[in-house]
Design a protein around this nucleic acid. Sequence first.
DNA 1: CAGTGGTCTAGACCACGCT
DNA 2: GCGTGGTCTAGACCACTGA
Lengths: 265, 265
Amino acid sequence: MVLDAQNPIPLYFQLKNIIENQISSGELKPGEKVPSENTLCERFQVSRTTARQAITELVNSGKIIRAQGRGSFVAQYPINKPPYRLTGFSADMKKQGFKPSSKILEFKVMLPTPEIARMLRIGPSDAIIFINRLRYVDKVPMGIEYTYMPFNRFPGLMDEDFENNSLYETLINKFNTVPSRIAISIEPVNCDNNLSNLLQAKNDTPILHMADITFDQNERLIEYSTCYYRGDRYSFQVEINKHQNENMLFVNKDFDKTRLDDNPK
Amino acid sequence: MVLDAQNPIPLYFQLKNIIENQISSGELKPGEKVPSENTLCERFQVSRTTARQAITELVNSGKIIRAQGRGSFVAQYPINKPPYRLTGFSADMKKQGFKPSSKILEFKVMLPTPEIARMLRIGPSDAIIFINRLRYVDKVPMGIEYTYMPFNRFPGLMDEDFENNSLYETLINKFNTVPSRIAISIEPVNCDNNLSNLLQAKNDTPILHMADITFDQNERLIEYSTCYYRGDRYSFQVEINKHQNENMLFVNKDFDKTRLDDNPK
DNA sequence: CAGTGGTCTAGACCACGCT
DNA sequence: GCGTGGTCTAGACCACTGA
């Protein structure tokens, strides 16, 4: 294995991929020592900065643990990132081996309610796109989603077919908009008659309510969405990582109290 | 503002703090351009590597957006990290301005059930510490938590008083164990008679069930815990970030399907 | 074109953990 | 003492953006 300086892929990234593959192939086992930074420099003929950048990204993604004076080691319990909604419902489900499908109940341009305007940070007369989708997994109703997006940011979106295509994939491919951050609020709710009809669920089915706001790679607001999922068929999974740098002893900044909606009603 | 090279706090960290403060004080407003890396080099008399390290960490924590060729900018919607469980229930609630308290219902050493042994990755004859706590917020029952920890990793833990002290703070201060990563599974459940008695809640109160596994800074497993929270008093909030480096175009690794418990029952 | 961030080099000194 | 990661310098060239 050698690095290719002519390759447009940066050296640190090539090196990172090599190490990543050694970990996933089992060549480097959990708990095992990763070659030291100096060793990597010699082995791959790069400067220490470059070797270090490769390792740093693997540390940030949780695959490697650094220990000053001892070395770097493959993480014992590698992070298994849950299908995490930044890829969209369809991709999430496919990753888990299920067959997702959707039925569009409503898809139109409208004016926002005051609440939705506040969540989207737009004015009351700014049009929005509203999508109401029933989500199926293996032909069984799984949940219902109400999605609200600023209209003027996505010209031509109304011509798309979201029964067969993923909203997120369309955003990425046709609007150069990559969902990159999502703030989620989750709570359990009771099933009402409306929900039990829509989801073909018993009246005592526990329901998971999720509200979220999504931002793109430039921190522009993409969507506000609120969803109800059948609790007998859905569990939400997430991993929370303390950043490497937040571990440092001289850090003592307090975070503010936080809410999904920071503007009081 | 100048940096102090004699200060044990690294230069990049001092610089990072300065910029962070400028953002939170409003001196640098959302969307505004951050001084370029070269400008920071001159202004603070550091190398570009150092200035860049400061900015990089702010990018990773979501406070700054980088745009090649244009500059770096304060994020429009700064991340408000939800109280995120890595600090423990008490700290989470205090941050939100509530008064948490706890009542220990059980606290003992015992042998694990097969399920708990599997979650803690220990043998069936390895003792565990079991803590059952009722959680209150402003004197009202909020939820009940069942915590399981490997006994042999925490000698002396049984002498602690967790009615008045935080488990996580004790781990940090007395066992040099910093909760650093947590994998959580969330689902809604119905309230049964046992829960409604314990939580003094109506029988139709929606309940949020959370199961989680926590790891320390060296990726050692700290605890497995399962909790039930009153849905009328609790919502779970989380922010999910795409890592800067995962945005890159030549990334195309698929994540495996994932679960909190990767060993089938 | 000038200014920006993205990548990279070849060094240096330090703090830490282990033997 | 030696090897490790942590921090830092002073350069360099490139790709991209906007005027």
